[in-house]
């Protein structure tokens, strides 16, 4: 069976992927958020496994992680919450988290659990490409998990080709040199970067993340890429409106009324 991520990537449409931190705003919101997002027409979801020291994240996701940990979120709790998720959610699900909590759980055990639940892929910002290749690739593949790699405007052409060659799914294109959430719109520099990557005709489609917050930035990103990922803007929405009101957020991004 083909991985759900790859199936989704074959659809003839631009994809909207949403990130949220598991355990935020309340410990047991995870399932509700997943179901509501799917019902609102989101194509893919990244479930954030909170970490005490999220190096690549800006203030919004940091604060949601701190709160989630305070609420009692752990790897074990998350896996329990997701135990029956495939009975009610069918879009691709990715766990995004830092490497240390996974390492402590045990990479083999972690991947096995993901496969049992029906998780399709992982994004681990601080697991370097070479370490993954040498030590963990076989495990991920054994459990049918896609590992998603990042590229940034500073990534060299040579390295982009290398990352493309070892990717199997999509490439996560970080929109600019920044941590999550710190953009207020894309300028010419970003457009040029989006164009440059688009023209490289990579084997894997690209999905752009970091700094996407509204219909305008979503449209800019998906002009050049297969899809876009929204994180901080959705967390802000959750903190204001709570978990029930995801529909209005998704509609505002897709500009549907």
């Amino acid at each position: 069976m083909m991985n759900r991520i790859n199936q989704k990537l074959q659809e003839d449409k631009k994809l909207l992927s949403i990130y949220f931190t598991a355990g935020y705003p309340n410990l047991h919101d995870t399932e509700t958020i997943l179901q509501n997002l799917e019902a609102s027409g989101v194509d893919m979801i990244e479930i954030g496994l909170p970490f005490s020291d999220p190096l690549a994240d800006g203030p919004t996701i940091q604060a949601s992680s701190t709160q989630a940990l305070k609420n009692g979120m752990t790897t074990e709790v998350l896996f329990n919450q997701l135990k029956d998720v495939r009975k009610s959610v069918s879009i691709p699900l990715i766990i995004m988290g830092y490497f240390n909590p996974m390492l402590q759980y045990g990479i083999d055990a972690f991947c096995k659990k993901c496969a049992e639940i029906g998780i399709d892929g992982l994004i681990i910002p601080d697991l370097p490409v070479d370490v993954y290749n040498e030590q963990y690739k076989t495990t991920f593949e054994k459990f049918g998990l896609i590992n998603v790699f990042l590229i940034t405007p500073q990534t060299s052409v040579e390295r982009i080709h290398f990352i493309d060659s070892i990717s199997n799914g999509f490439i996560y294109m970080v929109s600019s040199a920044s941590v999550t959430g710190s953009q207020s719109g894309f300028g010419e520099e970003q457009s040029n970067y989006f164009k440059r990557i688009s023209n490289m005709n990579l084997k894997n489609p690209q999905i752009i993340g970091f700094g996407i917050s509204n219909n305008e930035t979503f449209t800019q990103a998906t002009t050049y890429a297969k899809g876009a990922i929204i994180g901080s803007a959705f967390i802000k929405h959750l903190s204001k409106e709570g978990v029930k009101e995801t529909d209005s957020f998704v509609k505002s991004i897709l500009n549907k009324t």
Partner: peptide, 11 residues
């Protein structure tokens, strides 16, 4: 040891 850093820091 090693360098367990996000891609953004790689360059």
């Amino acid at each position: 040891g090693g360098a367990y850093i996000p891609e953004m820091l790689y360059p």
